Lab assay of single mutants.
Amino acid sequence: TKKDTKLYCICKTPYDESKFYIGCDRCQNWYHGRCVGILQSEAELIDEYVCPQCQST
């Protein structure tokens, strides 16, 4: 049987260590910077990140 692979981001793909991720400070989920429109250089300046799903609630 195929091992359950945890899926990340709004694009629902397995973790890829070569890509940049940003963690939501509300739901603790991880998102590709590219998918949520945040560059790694911008993320370093953000104190708290809230993902699109949490922003809409």
Rank of each mutant, 00 (worst) to 15 (best):
R26A: 10
E44A: 13
T13Q: 09
E48T: 13
L39V: 05
L7S: 12
C24Q: 00
L39D: 11
D47Q: 15
C27F: 01
L39N: 15
P14V: 06
V36N: 04
Q40G: 11
Q40P: 07
I10N: 04
K12R: 11
T1I: 09
F20C: 05
I46W: 08
S41P: 10
K3C: 02
C24G: 01
D25C: 09
K12A: 05
K3V: 13
Q55G: 07
K6S: 12
N29A: 15
S41C: 07
R26F: 06
A43G: 12
F20D: 11
E42Y: 05
T57M: 03
E42S: 07
F20H: 10
V36A: 03
F20T: 13
V36D: 02
T5S: 11
E44I: 07
G23H: 14
R26D: 12
C54Y: 00
I22H: 02
C11D: 02
I38C: 03
S56L: 05
A43T: 09
C35Y: 01
I46L: 12
T5P: 11
K19G: 06
H32S: 02
G33C: 15
D47S: 12
T5I: 13
P14D: 03
E42T: 05
C11Y: 00
V36L: 09
W30R: 15
P52Q: 12
K6N: 12
S41M: 09
C24L: 01
G37C: 04
L45R: 14
D4A: 08
L7W: 09
L7I: 08
D47K: 15
C27L: 00
N29E: 05
C54F: 00
T5F: 11
F20R: 09
Q55Y: 04
G23V: 06
I10L: 13
C51N: 01
Q28G: 12
C54R: 01
Q28K: 15
R26P: 07
Y49L: 05
T5E: 15
R26I: 14
D4K: 13
N29I: 04
I10A: 03
E44C: 09
C51S: 03
Q55N: 10
G23C: 13
N29W: 05
T57G: 08
C11F: 00
L45A: 10
R26G: 14
F20P: 13
E44V: 09
P14K: 10
H32K: 00
